[in-house]
Design a protein around this nucleic acid. Structure first.
Length: 668
RNA sequence: GCUCGCGUAGCUCAGUUGGAUAGAGUGUUCGCCUCCGAAGCGAAAGGGCGCAGGUUCAAGUCCCGCCGCGAGUACCA
């Protein structure tokens, strides 16, 4: 039996005991992890609640400790429980039978399976993340989005869900149009010129997205003094949206190439997708029209004839009661008849939830090295073979920057208004704060910082200004640093092995760095901190797993024959009851909490919870490792116990790291 | 103005539907590799959780009011 189940059983026992002893029906009760191992493995502060209820019902005051005493007996009946104590003001502290628990951990699967559910009846959810405008290279802020999204996907899969990963491609927006303006009117390039440029860049080992990064910033600068060029933007945007013209073809090339570059960048971080839905198809397949009709039929949208939104179709929201009369009403169709981004987003969200009644066509976009496929939407039926089923998700998670919480609120409320039967809970905005630069970091990147900005604690990154830490640059720097360390420590490894190890370390460092902050914390990027391999880092966690593995490598070379199952229960219990028994046990129980931690992180929509747990697990293992000489232990039973514990710890640590998208190298 | 988020050790951050002596990392000082990997371990110093009230057996966590910082509040995306 795994720990989650055991705790669930104990909670039920307490509820039943409360009923039989005090005739009080509790629906749910809290259980918590005691602050110290000596205080037990699970604690119920239930006596306080019961005391309150008894007072309510009878008016009599009762002592929580006395109440707790009367609940003890029921818990003791569980054979996994060794003893129960009443402590403090009335805590009910439960101690598990340590020896039994450890032996069982050897045979039963107490850690969660990490593979995605293949069961087609398992609930399917959709996670949209990354969604970088395909007009430039990805920067560290985009990586935060992708790493949070990807980790959340892994967490959901570990809880048994089927997950579809979408990366929305806004290939017809102003940002792509801006770069197209740059190519057409600053550089005077044709599509052929751009293709040649692209080929030359590739030959020089450079990438198209980096070129666009600079061009985009240049366009932004020129816009400020050249009105004529700015006027071109609207013209280009219109052509791009309309499609089927040379400008649109050029834009498609630019966007598609950037998508390829961004996918390659994300692949370095271990981040992959199932589907790339594009805005062009949402336009050309008239998703909006269908959504609009639905809204009219259901009368959740109205045409304004007066006021500042005259001539627009708006969706009214009464919740926000601002000073302005209709401040909260959201315009979905402009007075010139075009649809706003939020309008398109509502249609897209409806499709994700299987509520639109229309579908895309699909084409294979890319196949990863191991055969996994990424699909892209198309406007016409290309009769592609073996198209998987997309959309139609029970719940949709959108990983989007918190600055967009207002439009996301509109999308959520909008869909719920149109389909009250589906409700708001089906749309989750997984918001996160931005990654900003410290003034020092911005200067290190070679940017002139205004005096005003120097006073600020952080500076927002800006693609338009070309101000940001590019994802590939940072990862390259991390790989270089890691490689230098690997060279120092393992000169005997081959060049390939060294580079592979350095890569795993670099990815571990960066993913952990982005995950250790909770979502609503602004990360003020600092090179020193991000490049660190010491302290609370992914590298620390990897290192501890590598050391654990090296114990077993050594053991493999020896005859390790003696296993814990061969010892008698009393022998093992004696070890846990000895002076250092508590600290051996604390390693066991912490390693066993992986499953509940994953469930907790999934419920709270917070990957950082798993990151923190993983660090604690690694820290605890390091302490365990330094206190106990495992291989050299002379007492056979104790040695077997230490080995079993180390084995459990490394399995749990490895599984936790994998769920964070962090690999464990062979050596490091 | 309104809405949302945040204010916890020198610095950067955790803190599970309110719970047992407020925790990490980093920085500072000191100690630990003839013994499973020192990207490690141990120790010391360091805050009473922005301010002021309230609810509760119990408040960093909930409520009210202030103060400070940030974001949003487009017929941009």
């Amino acid at each position: 039996m795994n720990l989650s189940k055991l705790q669930e059983n104990l909670r039920e026992t307490v509820i039943a005991a409360a009923k039989s002893e005090f005739s009080i029906e509790l629906e749910t009760i809290a259980s918590e992890v005691p602050p110290k191992t000596e205080l037990g493995d699970v604690a119920f502060p239930v006596a306080f609640e019961l005391a309150r209820r008894i007072k309510q019902q009878t008016g009599e005051k009762s002592n929580p400790r006395m109440i707790a005493e009367r609940l003890k007996a029921a818990l003791k009946e569980n054979e996994a429980v060794e003893r129960v104590e009443v402590a403090g003001a009335g805590y009910l502290n439960v101690f598990f039978h340590r020896a039994k628990f450890l032996i069982e951990s050897q045979t039963a699967e107490i850690l969660p399976r990490l593979s995605e559910s293949k069961d087609q009846s398992a609930p399917k959810v959709c996670v949209e993340h990354t969604s970088v405008n395909p007009n430039k290279a990805a920067h560290i802020g985009h990586v935060r989005n992708s790493v949070i999204g990807d980790t959340f996907v892994r967490i959901l899969k570990a809880t048994g869900k089927r997950v579809e990963v979408q990366n929305y491609i806004d290939n017809t927006g102003v940002q792509v149009a801006d770069v197209v303006v740059g190519f057409l009117y600053i550089e005077n390039k044709t599509l052929e010129d751009i293709k040649n440029l692209d080929a030359n860049l590739t030959a020089e080992g450079k990438t198209f997205d980096y070129y666009c990064w600079d061009l985009y910033a240049k366009v932004g600068q020129i816009y400020q003094k050249d009105e004529a060029l700015k006027a071109k933007r609207a013209e280009v945007l219109h052509l791009v949206e309309a499609g089927k013209n040379p400008t649109a073809e050029l834009a498609d090339y630019v966007a598609t190439r950037n998508v390829e570059c961004i996918l390659a960048t994300m692949e370095r971080f271990g981040i992959r997708y199932d589907l790339l839905p594009r805005e062009s198809e949402i336009l050309h397949l008239h998703f909006w029209k269908k959504a609009f009709e639905e809204m009219q039929t259901r009368e959740v949208i109205k045409f304004e004839t007066e006021g500042k939104a005259a001539g627009c179709w708006v969706m009214p929201f009464e919740e926000h009661s601002g000073n302005d009369e209709h401040e909260a009403d959201k315009i979905l169709v402009r007075s010139n008849g075009t649809v706003t981004y939020t309008g398109k987003d509502i249609a897209y969200q409806m499709w994700k939830l299987g509520l639109l009644g229309l579908d895309f066509y699909y084409n294979l976009f890319h196949t990863y090295a191991d055969g996994k496929e990424v699909w892209i939407t198309t406007a016409t039926d290309l009769a592609s073979a073996n198209v998987p089923e997309f959309g139609n998700s029970e719940t949709v998670y959108n990983v989007i920057d918190s600055r967009q919480s207002y439009p996301q609120e509109v999308v959520k409320k909008g869909v719920a208004t149109i389909f009250p039967e589906k409700g708001e809970a089906a749309s989750v905005h997984l918001s996160y704060e931005m990654v900003a630069l410290s003034p020092g970091a911005a200067e290190e990147l070679g940017f002139q910082i205004s005096d005003e900005d120097k006073q600020k604690s952080f500076i927002e990154m800006s693609g338009r200004k070309g101000l940001g830490v590019k994802a590939d640059d940072l990862l390259n720097r991390l790989e270089e640093n890691a490689l230098a360390e690997v060279e120092k420590r393992h000169a005997d490894l081959s060049g390939d092995e060294k580079r592979k190890t350095a890569h795993i370390i670099a990815v571990g460092a960066l993913r952990y760095f982005l995950l250790k902050f909770t979502r609503n914390t602004v990360i003020v990027f600092d090179f020193k901190e991000a490049l660190s391999f010491e302290g609370e880092t992914g590298v620390f966690c990897q290192y501890s797993a590598v050391r654990a593995n090296s114990i077993f490598r050594k053991l493999g070379e020896q005859d390790s024959g003696f296993r814990i199952q061969d010892s008698r229960l009393e022998e093992i219990s004696a070890i846990f009851n000895a002076e250092d028994g508590d600290d051996i046990w604390s390693m066991v129980i912490l390693a066993a909490r992986l499953e509940e931690t994953i469930a907790y992180a999934a419920n709270a929509n917070e990957p950082a919870l798993l990151a923190k747990y993983t660090f604690n697990l690694a820290k605890t293992f390091n302490v365990f490792y330094s206190r106990h000489k495992i291989i050299a232990e002379e007492n056979k039973a104790k040695r077997a116990v230490l080995i079993a514990v180390a084995d459990l710890a490394r399995s749990s640590l490895t599984a936790a790291l994998n769920t964070l998208g962090i690999e464990v190298p062979e050596r490091m």
